[in-house]
Amino acid sequence: MKKAQFSNPWLPYALLAPQMLIIAIFFLWPAAEAIRSSFYLEDPFFGNATFVGLQNYTDAFRASDYQRTAWFTALFVTLVSLLSLAIGLMLAVSADRVLRGQSSYKTLLMWVYAIAPPVAGLIGVMLFDQHIGPLVDFFALFGWEMRLGVNYWDTGIAIIIVSTWKQIPYNFIFFLSGLQSIPNSVKEAARIDCRSERRRFWTITFPLLAPTSFFLLILNITYAMFETFGTIDQMVKDQPGNSPVTLVYKVYRDGFRGNDLGGSAAQSVVLMVLVLILTIVQFRLIERRVHYN
């Protein structure tokens, strides 16, 4: 904190008031409501609620549907994060090295960042459509008949591809600016000491990028967990029941479509705990980086 500060009996409160008001109404109240109703069994038609303790939680965890969704979410988050990080890094390393056309490449590779997840999903649905989709024709060349919305894993793979595609520009931008912030003196010294470009990358560049990568990993996990909602919603449109979805999508589906208010609330609370863990890890990382600097 700064040493020189103002002191005023009411002004800081007035300045904070708008944000606090919105947080209280739209964050704290709903969150408290979610926690409360996760312990109740609510009748969606008459509004009667009975206290059932942890039953909503145990019911959710025991349901085979929940377990299947949890496994798919784990796989989905891992694949989307790692694939988009790897491709983003590869493109950034190449873009950092080329002498000509760097800004054109950058512009073209960034474009997809602007696309909303559901729009990406809509384009994905068409590209993977059984009748009109060119990607289905492409995979058919290898003898794989994709059936989006019919086959569980075909749909899953299509969702993973589209979600990865959407996230690549983000990682590309961060990696490229990370690479460009490495001082030239370091690069030159490394070039004198080590002739092999590959070894130079893995022993000098990659460790220097490690903090960025860890930070990005967390952001990618958050993206895959939460922001892919729109993509998934588009891509499973006809058959959300028998298609792969993430835990976040399931909260929405059970609450809004299935009218299982207590069960949906219990799943929300589980997700809040997950976010809590992610946030703690993220802040630990930032703190450590501050110490290094």
Binding site: F27, P30, A34, F226, A265, S268, V275
Partner: peptide, 12 residues
Amino acid sequence: TLLLPLEVRILP
């Protein structure tokens, strides 16, 4: 508020 993305508190 970082702990409460819209997606997890959507129904309430």
